[in-house]
């Protein structure tokens, strides 16, 4: 009985408090409602809008190391097509040069990601090269992508047609995806401060074009196509060659398939 008295006045207090809280929450959420509306307006069905059904495709890439001449046109075209900053710290694709010497030393380099190509042969005194080749690198668009697994907010995802993309509007820039990618395929955009990566030139692919790096490869070392359709150039490529993927032990299930991959490549 005694306790009831103070409780009553408290009830009034509490009601007041709750009322204020509701007001505060509403005030905070008004801008949020507006942005949500705005997003709804921008939203359009990307299936109907482009006459492209992502559920009909499944993309991958083949790279024949024996055909790559290390001209680096792919790395250059990628930067131009995708507005990748020209500074030598940000790459969506690059070309590595491997030189394996007789004494067992392996030297790898990729000056500016090969955007300017590889300059003249440097002569190594007293070194005998036994194997040497170029390896183009790109996001592997893994079937089991560790970057998508670790993204805390759902800002990076795999589309129904098997392309790993980043929603730069939603990315919070925590960089966990960069830590999780075993291939070094991601970077933080220096202006947007969000993660960026190869999109397989998704904006081209939905229009029926091939990715820019494939378009400009003079020796057809890169092949873009369907992974699952019989008549695809990629499937032909995989039938004609012995295929390897990068870091298979990590079970990322890459969809970039290499022909004539050397054991030293990682």
């Amino acid at each position: 009985m005694k306790k009831n008295l103070p409780n009553k006045s408290q009830n009034v207090n509490r009601r007041k408090f709750i009322k204020n809280l509701v007001l505060a929450v509403t005030a905070f959420s008004v801008p949020a409602v507006l942005t949500a509306k705005e997003q709804l307006k921008r939203m359009q069905s990307w299936i109907l809008g482009k006459d492209y059904n992502p559920f009909d495709h499944y993309w991958g890439m083949g790279i024949d190391i024996n055909k790559c001449i290390g001209c680096g046109r792919c790395a250059d075209a990628c930067k131009q097509e995708n507005d990748v900053p020209s500074e030598p710290f940000f790459f969506r694709t690059w070309v590595e040069r491997y030189r394996i010497f007789h004494d067992g030393e392996v030297r790898v380099d990729s000056p500016n990601g090969a955007v300017d190509g590889f300059k003249k042969q440097n002569i190594e005194k007293g070194k005998v090269t036994i194997r040497s080749f170029f390896v183009p690198k790109i996001c592997n668009h893994c079937d089991n992508p560790p970057c998508v697994q670790v993204c805390p907010v759902g800002a990076t995802f795999i589309t129904p047609d098997g392309v790993v993309l980043v929603d730069s509007d939603y990315c919070i820039g925590c960089r966990y995806c960069i830590q999780a990618c075993p291939y070094g395929a991601r970077y933080i955009d220096p202006i947007k401060k969000t993660a960026e990566k190869c999109t397989f030139c998704y904006h081209r692919v939905v229009q029926g074009l091939v990715p820019a790096c494939v378009e400009v490869c003079p020796t057809q070392a890169r092949v873009f196509g369907e992974v699952k359709k019989k008549a695809s150039p990629l499937v032909r490529f995989m039938r004609m060659n012995k295929i390897g993927v990068l870091k298979p032990a990590l079970n990322t299930e890459p969809k970039v398939y290499y022909a004539n991959l050397d054991m030293e490549v990682n």
Binding site: V150, P152, V153, G154, A155, I172, R175, T194
Partner: peptide, 28 residues
């Protein structure tokens, strides 16, 4: 310290609203 390190701390609420259940960090 985590918030200050984010590229976009102002979007950090997304981690609570749409946590990606496969992400270790989303459980934070």
């Amino acid at each position: 310290s985590l918030l200050a390190h984010l590229g976009h701390p102002e979007k950090s609420y997304e981690i609570l609203l749409t946590p990606n259940l496969t992400s270790a960090m989303a459980m934070f």
